[in-house]
Computed example of a mutant assay.
Amino acid sequence: MPATTSENPEQSSPTSFRELSASTTDPVAIETDLEDAAPRDDLTPEQLAALWAEEEPPAAGPWANLGASLVVLAFGVAGIFLSQGLGVGSPTRPGAGMWPLLVSVIIVALSLVQLIIGRRGGHDGEKFNRYSLITLIGFITLLGMVWLMPIIGFEIPALLLCVIWMKFLGGESWRSTAIYSALIVVAFYLIFITALGTSIPHLF
């Protein structure tokens, strides 16, 4: 009767990125195999800290943080001017531009803080890559919603914004996107139109 041999799963599985790269070209499979080859539950806190340090993306540096802060500052200032055109109203009867104004003011304040902190340190930021466009696209679509609200009301722009953010930027399924987008728009309508009676432009 021929002898049977059993392979140790830990010895047969690839243990290095070079071996994984030679066996497959799928980056998702490589990342999954690496996690299976080296279970992080068995690592000490010092080893985990060293592993996380190796996996960190390159730091952006002070000049990149300066440029990013200036771009965000410009968007915040533009949002303030656009919200003024919508009509701010008062705290008791807020207009369509009240919430965009508050968000824009917060953006300006945070960008000014980042201008100071980022220029001194800049080690926490990451270098720009293709995923950085997600933030830019999200902010542009938000400005598009603010622009469309006085024309067609807030329901359709808010629904489209949720769909874009959840499906195309967040990678959610169409089912989750449809359900949660509708719930968000209904919740905003019940809170700001029905309950508070604000003057936000709306269709119904």
Rank of each mutant, 00 (worst) to 15 (best):
A29D: 10
W165A: 08
L112W: 02
A37S: 15
L110T: 05
F17Q: 11
H123R: 15
M98T: 02
R119V: 14
L161H: 05
L133K: 04
G121V: 05
I191H: 09
L190N: 09
L48Y: 11
L86G: 00
G122V: 06
F168I: 09
E7S: 14
G76R: 05
A96V: 02
T177H: 11
E155I: 02
E7I: 13
E10T: 08
I164M: 15
A182W: 01
T177A: 10
V28H: 12
D33H: 03
P62S: 12
W99T: 12
E172I: 04
W174S: 13
V103N: 01
Q47H: 14
A37L: 09
C162K: 03
C162S: 15
I193Y: 10
W99D: 12
P150A: 05
I184F: 09
L101N: 01
F17M: 10
L133V: 08
G121S: 13
G125D: 00
L196R: 14
S16E: 04
I193R: 08
A37Q: 06
L183Q: 10
G121Y: 08
E7Y: 11
T92N: 13
L203Y: 02
L160K: 07
L160H: 03
L101C: 00
L136Y: 15
P100E: 02
L169Y: 04
T44W: 03
K167T: 06
F128T: 01
L102H: 11
H202Y: 08
L102S: 12
F204I: 11
S104W: 00
L183A: 12
L110D: 02
A53Y: 07
F168E: 07
R119I: 09
V88R: 09
S173F: 06
A49T: 14
G89F: 01
W174P: 09
F192H: 13
V103W: 01
I30F: 03
V185Y: 00
V77M: 13
L115S: 04
P62N: 02
V146M: 10
R130D: 14
Q84H: 07
L161K: 05
M1R: 12
F204L: 13
P150N: 13
S181P: 03
I140N: 10
V113N: 08
V77W: 07
P2Y: 09
W165M: 11
H202W: 09
E10N: 11
G95P: 11
P58C: 06
L20Y: 12
R40L: 12
G118V: 02
E54Y: 03
P2E: 11
V113K: 13
G197L: 00
H202M: 08
E55C: 10
F188C: 08
A29L: 11
